[in-house]
């Protein structure tokens, strides 16, 4: 493994952010807030782990595949999360009781 110190630092930061995302999924009160925490933290956490794999293996088959996987995750994770948010809103899941405003409902009526 090349450069083990950098690899351990990258992977431990990534794992910490993954855990924070999972914790947010449990603690936050409604679907939309949970999606926020889960998308942001888990995307960055997984990308950091995969960058750690790139640093560990260098430019060979494994490193290139890890880099491609990181790009895929960075691209598809926000897209999937706003598809889910739109689906949840159209299915009629209410916002948390402490929410301030819902312009989407006012404008589209669904």
């Amino acid at each position: 493994m090349n450069n083990p110190v950098a690899v351990y630092i990258l992977i431990s930061i990534g794992v910490v952010f993954d855990l924070v995302g999972a914790l947010g999924l449990i603690r936050l009160p409604d679907v939309y807030n949970r999606l926020q925490a889960a998308t942001k933290c888990v995307t960055l956490g997984t990308c950091l782990i995969l960058v750690g794999v790139v640093v560990a293996s260098g430019w060979n088959a494994m490193g290139i595949k890890a880099l491609l996987a990181a790009v895929f995750v960075l691209w598809t994770s926000p897209t999937g999360s706003h598809a889910l948010a739109r689906g949840a809103h159209i299915a009629g899941v209410p916002l948390w009781a402490g929410s301030v405003v819902d312009k989407y409902k006012e404008d589209t009526g669904r």
């Binding site: 493994m1 995302g21 999924l25 293996s57």
Partner: peptide, 28 residues
């Protein structure tokens, strides 16, 4: 939708688990 969010998040986390397996075993 809460369940769907959980499933989506598990999917992304397993990608990270696969990366760590890759480092541990050295298999690409």
């Amino acid at each position: 939708p809460d369940r769907a969010v959980g499933i989506d998040t598990i999917g992304v986390m397993i990608v990270g688990i696969c990366g760590i397996f890759g480092i541990m075993t050295g298999q690409d």
